[in-house]
Design a binder for these strands. Structure first.
Lengths: 206, 206
DNA sequence: ATATTAAATTGACTATAGTCATTTTTGATG
DNA sequence: CATCAAAAATGACTATAGTCAATTTAATAT
């Protein structure tokens, strides 16, 4: 048992940078913040940044990941007692899209970089995959799980989201997206439309 | 009737840049070529580049567009006599993906930027939309055309493509993608699988 | 031909990303 | 406490993108 070192003179540079970067980017917008701004505010050398992050955008990955995990937990909670896997998926997708839209950092990330799938799959993908797998096992989804279902769906979500950002067609974009996804999963067209448009149960706010 | 000016001392800077940029990028790879390289090779001032293109990546847009148009024309030819809209779509999608993969510029563009939809919709989107619209009119596709079908599908294609690039799972990615798209269009799962895996008629090479 | 105007082009300049040899800190050991 | 090696941090440096006031070229009118 090592004695608990109180020594905390300096937080590790990594977390300092992360915290400051998020603050700055939220306040001023991602584009406006330079690496210099970040390192200065975090009171570390310029080079230190690149010790921990490959590039400026890289710093957004852990931030997005954390968000994804929080959201995932909330969604798991919200959908735990829902029987129909199709409804679970529809609810999750819709909340995911609303959440992305609400958060400027996430939004920017997805919009700019088109979703570097490897990274965000952890957060979003895992529980999504689980829900889908369940639906398949229960025979509710006809499509069987294949290599590319996930990239297909994530890409599709990203595409719809981008479109929503560029052309300002509010409409029912998000429900439409959920509807398409249910179709891919093999749900009948009419039923899919109905499920995708059911009232969306609110997420418990944090 | 103005007399035909022979004056051709200098090609317009725009097209010179375009030609040179494509050459260089194909030879050395997109990342490796700097704007300086391009302007130097095109024998124009550095600033001239930005007179015609908003950014370095911008120069790829007209290139990609032209490709898209060529491909589209070939595909239209190839599928003109095919009765079933579902098969037309399956063939087109598969050829599109193979074409993207074969062309390093297109490929890089799609991979990096996640497909700036507005631009490429012109080329790819138009004929795709037409094929889909036909299938709907004929009652072959159950889904009806909506605002977001196109972004959804383009995004999905982009997602699958990216995934194919990162994880080197050759497999039958492309057929799988076509299969999912048929599902979205409302084709029955078994039939979709069958259509997506039919032998792919070769494109006439240019 | 000359003057006049508009459009195209230029390249020096600024700002920022990202690198890397050097220095500082840490913490283990005698 | 002094020594040392490994790890972390630094900031001067390089390379490149993108800007813009000044200049050149082209087009038209007189």
């Amino acid at each position: 048992m090592s004695s608990p070192r109180v020594q905390r003179k300096k937080q590790k540079a990594y977390s300092r940078i992360l915290i400051v970067a998020e603050q700055l980017m939220r306040k001023r917008g991602v584009e406006e913040v330079t690496v210099q701004d970040i390192t200065q505010a975090a009171d570390v050398g310029h080079g230190t940044f690149y010790l921990h992050f490959k590039s400026k955008m890289d710093v957004l990955i852990p931030i997005a990941e954390e968000h994804a995990q929080t959201l995932t937990a909330l969604l798991d909670d919200l959908t735990r007692d829902i029987e129909d896997p199709a409804e679970v998926v529809a609810i999750s997708i819709r909340h995911l899209l609303y959440a992305i839209e609400k958060d400027p950092l996430w939004s920017w990330f997805l919009f700019q970089s088109g979703w570097p799938s490897e990274q965000l799959r952890k957060g979003v993908g895992d529980s999504g995959r689980r829900d889908i797998a369940r639906g398949m096992k229960e025979g509710r989804f006809i499509t069987h799980l294949q290599e590319n279902l996930e990239p297909f769906l994530l890409g599709a979500i990203s595409g719809v989201f981008r479109n929503r950002m560029t052309s300002n067609t509010e409409e029912n974009t998000i429900e439409e997206c959920a509807y398409y996804i249910l179709l891919v999963l093999g749900i009948d067209s009419h039923e899919a439309a109905e499920i995708a448009n059911r009232p969306l149960p609110a997420l418990p706010t944090i």
